[in-house]
Amino acid sequence: MAALALTLPVEYGYVLLTATFTLFSSSWHGVRVGGFRKAAKIPYPQAYAESNDMKAASGDEKKKMYLFNCAQRAHGNFLENMPAFTIAMLIAGLRFPVTAAIMGLGWNVSRIFYAVGYTSPNHDKGQGRLYGLTFWLFQAGLIGMVGWMGVKMVI
């Protein structure tokens, strides 16, 4: 079995900067949820406005609760996908640092569009989140790059 030496290309710094941006993006999501929580008057640690809350609310209050739920769900979806994305970007960046960083930047921008669209008062049923679904393409691309690296190492 041959040993594998790991040398980081200087461009790997772009990957690390993108990973740092991802951490700021995560915090941005959390701060947004806090603003929507305050507007909806949903006390912490209650995770969502529940159906009983919604039934008892007026039209404007109900809309604020709905948007809080959307913000919370956008943040939850971000947190669900962030580990796989981050691991894939960090690994893919070992061989393809610039491409991985660009794809990571695209993923983060898509996640922002997703969150902003999801909480748009002009879209019913969270349809605004569709503006950011391109994050799946970036995430799948990074995962594919990691798989390709694995194949190339064993053949």
Rank of each mutant, 00 (worst) to 15 (best):
L90A: 03
L90G: 03
L90W: 04
L90V: 06
L90K: 10
L90C: 04
L90P: 05
L90M: 11
I91K: 08
I91G: 00
I91H: 06
A92Q: 08
A92I: 03
A92Y: 05
A92C: 04
A92R: 09
A92S: 08
G93W: 01
G93P: 03
G93S: 03
G93E: 01
G93T: 00
L94Q: 03
L94K: 09
L94N: 02
R95F: 00
R95P: 01
R95G: 01
R95V: 00
R95M: 01
R95W: 00
F96A: 01
F96E: 02
P97R: 08
P97V: 05
P97A: 05
V98Y: 00
V98Q: 00
V98T: 01
V98H: 00
T99K: 05
T99C: 07
T99E: 03
A100I: 15
A100S: 15
A100L: 15
A100M: 14
A100E: 09
A101S: 05
A101E: 01
A101Q: 02
A101G: 02
I102Y: 06
I102E: 06
I102H: 05
I102D: 06
I102T: 14
I102P: 07
I102C: 05
M103E: 09
M103S: 13
M103A: 14
M103N: 14
M103G: 06
G104P: 12
G104D: 07
L105K: 12
L105T: 10
L105R: 09
L105G: 04
G106K: 10
W107S: 01
W107T: 06
W107C: 03
W107P: 06
W107D: 02
N108W: 07
N108H: 11
N108E: 09
N108G: 15
N108K: 14
N108F: 07
V109A: 03
V109S: 08
V109M: 08
V109Y: 07
V109Q: 14
V109C: 08
V109T: 15
V109G: 04
V109K: 12
S110F: 09
S110C: 11
S110W: 09
S110I: 09
S110Y: 07
S110N: 13
S110H: 11
S110K: 11
S110D: 04
R111A: 01
R111Y: 06
R111G: 02
R111I: 02
R111D: 02
I112N: 15
I112Y: 15
I112C: 15
I112F: 14
F113K: 13
F113V: 12
F113C: 06
F113E: 12
F113M: 15
Y114L: 08
Y114R: 14
Y114S: 10
A115P: 15
A115R: 14
A115V: 13
V116S: 04
V116C: 06
V116G: 05
V116L: 11
G117R: 10
G117S: 10
G117K: 13
G117V: 08
Y118M: 10
Y118K: 14
Y118H: 15
Y118N: 12
T119V: 13
T119N: 08
T119H: 09
T119E: 11
T119Y: 07
S120Q: 14
S120I: 07
S120W: 08
S120K: 13
S120P: 07
P121V: 10
P121I: 13
P121T: 08
P121S: 13
P121K: 15
P121G: 11
